[in-house]
Design a protein around this nucleic acid. Structure first.
Lengths: 225, 225
DNA sequence: CTAGGGTTCAAGAGAATGCTTGAATAGTTC
DNA sequence: GAACTATTCAAGCATTCTCTTGAACCCTAG
């Protein structure tokens, strides 16, 4: 014991986890799965990749232990092996944001200019929720809302936003949120709302971060009541 | 914005951080550097790799932003870019421990059988330190002790242990610690001590974890006093 | 300014990776 | 039990990785 060969094997095993996340497409898969379980076809659609290629990436994630599968009728649902995997992914993302030089530009290229968008921290939103002086909009697709959302939020998927503007008050502050700091849904929603004269801002990060902080959430059961 | 190409580039950038850790040798480099800064030659020595190869891995870590360099006389000292990198590495290690199937066997192959070794948690050690009924041994090489150690610990590098047995009391409990949960120094020390009739146990993890938990530490300045 | 040594660079061989295409599989569902 | 279809497998090609060897490059120290 303590020999070089065994040590190499051990560290190769540690590194296998990082290697699994060490590809843009697989990273994106983990990002998608941190929103909830998905079938191969759904994931391929979100990534803009072929089903075969997506399947191979999923196999690799499966072998590395980061995801698991469940059969659901005719399809296979993939999900993260545990919440720790989502935390690891968030840690990778944060270290990249801090230490990768080009990240700001790349994020700007994908997200567009955010300098005009007001944003709100978790603490600020929690306080305003407590005071009740804010409307919270969950602009993710509805299934994700149903799977879990910020307690008190209303589901208005960004695709439906323009059709549901009449439900929203112009005299109250609106805070929109979505999947995380690099998700564009809330940005789009806030831009649309402000253009029409609403007082809208985006939550700095998204639902997964809110839930991980242990803040109040609801899921389907409570909603349907 | 929001287009596929930009999104791919963004996630490739996130993944670049994971990719940097996605090689056993580079993972080991980060593990070594989480103990403090090292020259290329030192790192190569610890890894059992050629200097040229080690240098190339270090260049890659440098490009990914995870490490930084500092010139010190005729040599270049590498260190982690920030404590967050050490945290990320610990997160990778923990996820691997939880989700990689073969990890237990690989760890056992490297560490040997730990079932006979008593171990102590951070909480337990903190409590016993408070009560003063324990001798804490830092069995890492002395430079690492000098760079920072558990407050109240004594430096007895494992290589010097047999020569310094007379300094250790047989009537008090001894807790040895080293670099982390996958470090063999404390194991070796505890085995040696128990064979000679001392009451020894190992700290479950190591110095970096202790420090990260915000528990009391000391460094050179206080020690020399 | 020069010698020396720590570090980096360059080229190359062999293996691994990532995506494509097309076929095979397995498990439901009807 | 048979048709369907979501998923996986297999083969192939271009690219990237990892380690080796040997030479080149700085920079400090004297």
């Amino acid at each position: 014991m303590g020999d070089r060969q065994a040590k190499n094997a051990l560290f190769d095993a540690f590194a296998s986890v990082a290697k699994a996340l060490g590809n843009g497409r697989r990273a994106e898969i983990v990002d998608v799965l941190s929103q909830g379980e998905r079938s191969v076809e759904q994931i391929a659609g979100e990534l803009g990749q072929s089903v075969a290629n997506t399947s191979q990436h999923l196999q690799q994630l499966l072998r590395s232990g980061l995801v698991r599968t469940r059969r659901d009728g005719t399809r296979i649902q993939y999900s993260l092996a545990s919440p720790r995997v989502a935390e690891l992914w968030a840690a990778v993302r944060d270290v990249a944001a801090e230490h990768v030089a080009e990240l700001d530009q790349l994020a700007a290229a994908y997200l567009g200019d955010r300098s005009q968008l007001d944003s709100v921290t978790q603490d600020q939103l929690a306080e305003r929720l407590r005071l009740g002086d804010v409307v919270v909009l969950d602009v993710r697709p509805e299934p994700e809302f149903l799977a879990g959302h910020i307690a008190g939020a209303v589901s208005v998927p960004v695709a439906d936003l323009t059709g549901r503007l009449r439900d929203l008050p112009k005299d109250r502050a609106i805070v929109a949120y979505c999947r995380g700091p690099y998700c564009v849904f809330a940005d789009d929603a806030v831009r649309t709302l402000r253009r029409r004269g609403y007082r809208a801002a985006r939550l700095e990060d998204g639902y997964p971060e809110w839930a991980r902080s242990g803040r109040p959430v609801s899921a389907r059961a409570e909603v349907d009541a």
